[in-house]
């Protein structure tokens, strides 16, 4: 391994709307999963109080529904921003759509997932925005969110008079009844839990192994890249 520069430059990657989306999404998903698991299997809280004086399970469901609205509109806002934001926020980031994208995907798969070492360390292959494998996992998360939105609002539609949940009223009959819809909704929650484990682990992994501010970038918006990498970007742009 050649000795390479450790002269890092601070680069603005994640714009404020992207960071805001991320943390709202974190809160919404955590709240939805927690309240959802309670709805699925309520704990046995034995109480001497009369039912008239209690409403905790109703409140739990209420929080679940509010968080669902927040998640949904937050997602729509992120979709809007994928057309408005910088290149790292662009919708094209989420699919390996060209030769370079596929090459990068294979690179990440080989060196980050399967932990092969490069024969010659090439800092140019450091990825600045989403790495392609992570981007694919976000696309999958997006699909999971769509499943939850369709099944969740489908189940909720009957309780609502607003047009928005009513848009999904067809879902339960399409999926063969509320029972099946509920099962799909329940199972998909585990997809979010598994995604969270992988996502948090890999964020820590990149921070630990690459030392380029992976985790802090989602707070401040800046990542660190090697000085040499900057030149190459400039050359390419010229």
């Amino acid at each position: 391994m050649t000795t390479i520069s450790h002269d890092f430059k601070r680069v603005f990657v994640w714009e404020a709307p992207v960071r805001l989306f991320h943390w709202i999404n974190v809160l919404a998903i955590l709240t939805l999963a927690a309240t959802g698991i309670i709805i699925g299997n309520p704990p046995a809280i034995m109480s001497g109080a009369e039912a008239t004086n209690q409403y905790w399970f109703g409140i739990n469901r209420y929080i679940h529904f509010i968080s669902a609205y927040i998640l949904t509109f937050n997602m729509l806002y992120r979709m809007f921003w994928s057309y408005m934001g910088n290149k790292y926020a662009n919708w094209k980031q989420f699919f390996p759509y060209n030769k370079k994208g596929i090459k990068n995907t294979l690179f990440v798969l080989k060196h980050h997932v399967l932990l092969q070492n490069e024969k010659v360390y090439d800092f140019r292959k450091n990825i600045i925005g989403h790495n392609p494998i992570a981007a694919i996992s976000y696309s999958l998360l997006f699909i999971l969110m769509l499943i939850q939105i369709f099944t969740g609002f489908g189940l909720y539609a009957d309780n609502s008079t607003w047009f928005f949940p009513k848009l999904f009223a067809w879902v339960p009959s399409f999926l063969g009844g509320d029972m099946n819809t509920r099962l799909i909704h329940h199972i998909t929650t585990w997809g979010f839990i598994i995604f969270t484990i992988i996502h948090v682990y890999l964020a820590m992994w990149h921070d630990w192994l690459e030392g380029r501010g992976e985790i802090s970038s989602m707070f401040g918006g800046y990542k660190f890249i090697r000085k040499e990498r900057l030149k190459k970007e400039e050359e390419k742009n010229d």
């Binding site: 008239t52 209690q54 905790w56």
Partner: peptide, 8 residues
């Protein structure tokens, strides 16, 4: 009401 009160 028992459902909403979490009494099962």
């Amino acid at each position: 009401p028992y459902f909403d009160a979490g009494l099962f």
